[in-house]
Amino acid sequence: MRIAELSRRTGVPVPTIKYYLREGLLPAGELTSPNQARYGETHLHRLRLVRALVEVGGLSIAAVRGVLGALEDPERSLHRAMGTVETAIVGAGAASDDEVAHEQARRFVDRQGWGYRPDSHAFRSLVAVLASARDIGLDSFPGQLDGYARVCGKLAEQDLDYVMTAATKDAAMEIVAVGTVLGDAALAAVRRLARRELSAVRARAEREEARPGEGGQDCAEPGD
């Protein structure tokens, strides 16, 4: 297919496709003339992948390049690929010198029985979050973490089970990449939906409790 058809089938403008080609996010097409190239199903699939990473995941071009590099490394295990993908997506994480927040994070991972890896981007991110909570006086926030861990343990199991449904290592690597990006976006959306629904249910319950009256007295209609 020509680049115009590639654009039509993916919804990605031709100038954007050319930009992705220049940046190495898409492999070059097969030249049919000095100024024209032919593209195949591989390009179609890769372009849709890049679009999902950029538009849904909000990744930078550099981050997408890192994710694609992890996918194309034949020697990288799935476990290492997950770390590479996550680092590409969220970055290395800014170090925080807040010793109290660091200790809170360390005690948290110890309670879960998880490995203590202070240089991992996930641990550094948690320390930064806890430091921010301390800065604004939200000293009770660390108490949320154990509840988060109970929920996230099940989510992690579901994520890994989904990866293992892939027929090949290449397919599994792609699930790791796309699943991390789309999974995080979907989780945030579902969390907001669930929170909004629960808030509405509790608000209705409060209104129903208040309906009989105020101050413990019934609110009778005039004439009753």
Score class of each variant (00 low, 15 high):
residue 202 R to Q: 07
residue 131 A to C: 04
residue 199 S to P: 09
residue 113 G to L: 11
residue 125 S to Y: 00
residue 123 F to T: 02
residue 181 V to C: 07
residue 162 Y to W: 14
residue 127 V to P: 01
residue 192 R to C: 12
residue 130 L to M: 04
residue 198 L to D: 12
residue 129 V to H: 13
residue 127 V to F: 03
residue 145 L to R: 00
residue 105 A to R: 01
residue 131 A to S: 04
residue 114 W to P: 05
residue 137 G to H: 03
residue 197 E to I: 07
residue 169 K to Q: 15
residue 138 L to W: 15
residue 103 E to S: 05
residue 107 R to S: 10
residue 158 Q to W: 08
residue 181 V to D: 11
residue 128 A to K: 10
residue 149 A to K: 10
residue 123 F to C: 02
residue 199 S to F: 09
residue 111 R to S: 14
residue 153 G to T: 09
residue 189 A to R: 05
residue 164 M to S: 15
residue 185 A to F: 12
residue 144 Q to E: 13
residue 165 T to H: 12
residue 152 C to G: 13
residue 158 Q to N: 06
residue 110 D to G: 09
residue 119 D to P: 06
residue 134 R to F: 01
residue 159 D to F: 03
residue 115 G to L: 08
residue 191 R to I: 01
residue 160 L to I: 03
residue 182 L to Q: 09
residue 131 A to Y: 01
residue 158 Q to C: 02
residue 186 A to T: 15
residue 152 C to N: 14
residue 129 V to Q: 12
residue 174 E to N: 13
residue 114 W to R: 04
residue 104 Q to G: 02
residue 132 S to V: 03
residue 153 G to C: 11
residue 137 G to D: 06
residue 186 A to K: 12
residue 117 R to V: 15
residue 184 D to S: 12
residue 124 R to L: 00
residue 131 A to P: 07
residue 193 L to N: 09
residue 202 R to K: 04
residue 120 S to N: 06
residue 159 D to R: 08
residue 121 H to R: 01
residue 186 A to Q: 15
residue 151 V to H: 14
residue 179 G to A: 05
residue 113 G to K: 12
residue 176 V to K: 05
residue 160 L to R: 00
residue 104 Q to V: 02
residue 174 E to K: 14
residue 113 G to M: 09
residue 173 M to S: 09
residue 167 A to T: 12
residue 191 R to A: 13
residue 104 Q to M: 03
residue 149 A to S: 13
residue 203 A to T: 00
residue 148 Y to H: 09
residue 103 E to H: 10
residue 188 A to L: 15
residue 188 A to Q: 14
residue 170 D to G: 14
residue 158 Q to T: 02
residue 201 V to R: 14
residue 126 L to A: 02
residue 134 R to N: 06
residue 127 V to M: 02
residue 187 L to Q: 06
residue 108 F to M: 02
residue 183 G to A: 07
residue 198 L to Q: 11
residue 142 P to C: 00
residue 167 A to K: 07
residue 128 A to Y: 06
residue 165 T to E: 14
residue 126 L to Y: 01
residue 133 A to Q: 05
residue 155 L to I: 00
residue 136 I to P: 10
residue 143 G to N: 10
residue 187 L to C: 06
residue 115 G to V: 08
residue 130 L to N: 02
residue 141 F to G: 13
residue 101 A to W: 04
residue 178 V to Q: 09
residue 101 A to K: 05
residue 203 A to F: 11
residue 181 V to I: 07
residue 172 A to L: 03
residue 112 Q to H: 08
residue 174 E to T: 15
residue 102 H to N: 07
residue 192 R to I: 02
residue 125 S to L: 01
residue 171 A to H: 03
residue 103 E to Q: 09
residue 135 D to G: 12
